[in-house]
Amino acid sequence: MNRLKAIADGQDIESVVHDEVLSREPVLTIQDFSLYYGRKQALHHITMPIAKGLVTALVGPSGCGKSTLLRSVNRMNDLIDSVSIEGDMVLGKDSIFAPGVDVIQLRKRMGMVFQKPNPFPMSIFENVVYPLRIDGERNKSTLMQVCEQSLRGAALWDEVKDRLGESGLGLSGGQQQRLCIARAIASDPEVLLLDEPCSALDPIATSKIEDLIEKLKGDYSILIVTHNMQQASRISDHTAFMYLGRLVEMGPTSTIFTRPKLQETEDYITGRFG
């Protein structure tokens, strides 16, 4: 517990990142990244690679900065005026925070799914093809094809194929969340960012989405925030444990959940604190 106490006291600690993680080819590298909301620092010198084609889970107690980190990846935090950052992230070979980066172009390379489903007030079809629409795609058959593909990918196709013209708001919560996932994968992104996608859902919908993540793995690199340890252990390949804006330990999920290098991680995983 002394590391966590040190963090709480505001001291810098060394994050432990396992070699198995470092040895994988990363799709996204976070390099000494810090973020401030006004004066308040929310992320402290985070350095971690996100492996290509795998699922990386972010766990940690509430308020430790998981969402903040996730939202920094596609620069969603630009929308908040008070935010300032230090450090950088690299997607593929391109810096994310370098001056002159085209944020819109950057976001087109990622898909994001939020904690609460947020389907747009338009038809199911239009919801799914929204990323293509804003790229100016007009070809009906292309749109239809992408729509079907994405909906199948999000395991929603069979449920909505007969009512693509109906409003996306008419779906159930779980369906709405899968619709948002379909929307996120419609533009065939390199990275998929999921922020507690199952927190508003019942167990059945949750398991459907977990299956889905399982299925998407390989094609997409996925970064997922979750509070549910079982879920993290079931679906992720790598797990990162964060605490008060700092990365504590990151390693292969099997290792983290069975014999982590740090006592603190084990305590958190097993629910002895947090």
């Binding site: 929308l79 976001r107 747009f120 804003i134």
Partner: peptide
């Protein structure tokens, strides 16, 4: 207009005006 809709739109890679035109104004 809920902010989550705006964020959703930006996350899809939409620009400011596109978001206003396609999401904010209709809503």
């Amino acid at each position: 207009v809920p902010n989550s809709l705006r964020e959703g739109s930006y996350a899809c890679g939409a620009g400011k005006w596109q978001t206003i035109e396609r999401i904010v104004l209709p809503y």
